[in-house]
Computed example of a mutant assay.
Amino acid sequence: MPALLLVAMLSGCTAETSAEETTTPATPIPQDRAPAAVGEAHESEVPADWAEPGDVPVTPVDDLDGEARRALLRIPASSDPVDQACTRQDLTADLTFQDAAMGHRYGHLTVTNTGATDCAVRGYPGLGARGAWGNPFVNELQQNPMDLHGHYLPGGDEYVPQVLDLGAGESAQLSVEWTGALGGAESEPLGELFLQPFRGADTLVVSGAAEVASDLSMFTTVKVGPFLPHDAEAEPDSG
């Protein structure tokens, strides 16, 4: 075989191999990021005239499109969508009160697969809130590796959430704590609490939040745990 032809063939193989090695996969491996947090809001983030009701009618939550709902998130979900990830259309979310201490409130947030087929959740949900007067809340928000009793999970910040497969009618739970600047009679009460099941997903409204967490207001600190298997007997204790 002529030397020039052999060199050309080898060069072609090298170029082909290099191109294959540098090609980005069409479907990236889903990431499950470490718990994140957002601190005190900058004054530029606080809505104008937030301290009193406005004159403009509040847009009903059902009239908000997906982009408007995502814009109300204070922090996004930690996980990219897993295989057969639960979407807004698959889930309902409910907040129930569990316990209270000096300046602290504790609840369980339950997400239930109301669809006809299995779906899955993983990691920490995204969370955001809007007040009853229509203002987006600028809560300090933390994703914390806490169990359904409010205690740190094994490994703490290094805890790696597992994929939870939810059959039709099955649920996952997570802990929610709100504390710090709790709202009073003169504060804008909670209108809606929004939950994002995975990063980039449309959000769903958490049922019961406006009643259970009525003192969650503009600057309240909120902590949320990861999705965990449902435990109807879980009750936070004082420890």
Rank of each mutant, 00 (worst) to 15 (best):
Q196K: 01
E186C: 11
W178R: 03
A36Q: 11
P229K: 10
E186Y: 15
G150H: 05
S214Y: 14
Y124V: 03
R74F: 01
G169L: 04
C119N: 07
D231Q: 07
Y159H: 15
T24F: 14
G200E: 07
P125K: 01
G169Y: 08
W178V: 06
V56P: 06
Y152L: 13
H42I: 09
D65A: 05
P145W: 06
L153W: 03
A37P: 02
G183E: 10
V121N: 00
A100D: 14
V7K: 11
T203V: 02
H104F: 14
L73M: 09
E158Y: 12
F198I: 04
E211D: 13
T87P: 04
G208Q: 01
S44I: 11
A129Y: 03
D237K: 08
I75G: 01
D237Q: 07
R199C: 07
S44G: 11
L174V: 01
V56N: 11
T114M: 04
S11D: 14
V205C: 01
T14P: 01
M102T: 13
L73C: 04
P161K: 11
A116D: 14
Q98T: 09
P229M: 05
S11A: 15
A51M: 15
A129G: 08
G54Y: 01
D99P: 06
A41S: 06
P2S: 15
W50M: 06
G66E: 12
P229A: 06
L164N: 04
E67R: 12
V7P: 05
L164D: 02
P154R: 11
R105D: 06
T24H: 14
L64E: 03
D62P: 04
T92R: 00
R130W: 05
D215P: 04
E45I: 06
V111D: 00
A129C: 11
G115Q: 03
L164Q: 09
E158T: 14
G239A: 13
Q162N: 11
P47K: 05
A26K: 15
G150Q: 05
S79F: 03
F194S: 00
G12R: 13
A120M: 08
D147H: 09
A37Q: 12
R33N: 08
L216W: 09
L166K: 02
Q196A: 00
G191M: 06
H151T: 06
G54C: 04
D55F: 10
T59Q: 13
F219R: 06
V222I: 12
G183R: 05
Q173G: 07
A3S: 14
V163W: 06
T59W: 09
D90G: 01
G107C: 10
L190I: 11
L190R: 04
P226G: 03
E20S: 15
A100Y: 13
L141N: 00
L72K: 09
G66H: 10
A93G: 01
T17W: 15
L174G: 02
V138Y: 05
P136L: 10
Q98Y: 05
P161F: 08
F198E: 00
